[in-house]
Nucleic acid binder design. Sequence first.
DNA 1: ACTTTAAATGCAACAACGTTGCATTTAAAG
DNA 2: CTTTAAATGCAACGTTGTTGCATTTAAAGT
Lengths: 117, 117
Amino acid sequence: MKVLEELTGTGQALSHTELESTFSKVDRITLYRVLKDFEEAGLVHKIIGPDGVTRFAVCRHNCPDETHTEDHVHFNCTNCHKVFCLEHTHNPDLRLPTGFKISGIQILVQGICKHCS
Amino acid sequence: MKVLEELTGTGQALSHTELESTFSKVDRITLYRVLKDFEEAGLVHKIIGPDGVTRFAVCRHNCPDETHTEDHVHFNCTNCHKVFCLEHTHNPDLRLPTGFKISGIQILVQGICKHCS
DNA sequence: ACTTTAAATGCAACAACGTTGCATTTAAAG
DNA sequence: CTTTAAATGCAACGTTGTTGCATTTAAAGT
Ligand SMILES: [Mn+2]
Ligand SMILES: [Mn+2]
Ligand SMILES: [Zn+2]
Ligand SMILES: [Zn+2]
């Protein structure tokens, strides 16, 4: 519950390490299991940034239970390296090569965040 | 050179493991170093998929040396889990929240690839 | 309140991925 | 042929993430 509150309260996606230092009393394996359970329950979603770091963020209202598609845009600040979930959802008109059928899309925007600009 | 040929020849992005089994004679650390050198030289680029697996693909003609921006779209097949570089580049008209300045974008499309459909 | 049962936690061990230091081999220059 | 530098292989280490098992904690049943 504390983990979920932390994820809900902060405006950004948090890495395992960040959560681990926040809850220094909790064993890291417990944290792994908690986050996995939250993800499977559709409460949080995982974001793997361009640096390969996995972060977690709470799912918003528009996240369906079954498909668990998180189709909103993610923002990765090149200065502070934080990751934010943007409310913006975007479905661009991509013309893919023949034979390719699109089922989902992941957009990650890089730039300078609100706090760093 | 063999590694570069392999990456150029195949139409997809290859993971370290895949390359390692292709060149079973080569030590895995040498492979790490070769790929790192290629990346820093701007010959290949890294793609980290939604599963967190790192893959490598050759840079095309339109990859500038300095910025090394790979702004083309990547396709991840949900069936065979292969990753393809699409020629398509897309700059959508995103309206970001105030204070956020965009400098780049990464688009990863998921679906069924040509070979699996 | 006491007992039974299940869930949550912590620890150890392990595997995959990736990096660094160092010795050796290989190839390029002189 | 000798000198020098680059490329390779090995060992060791760090990080991330998973699994098995024992213990603790909490929930239910009596
Ligand atoms: Mn998100
Ligand atoms: Mn590519
Ligand atoms: Zn920032
Ligand atoms: Zn496929």
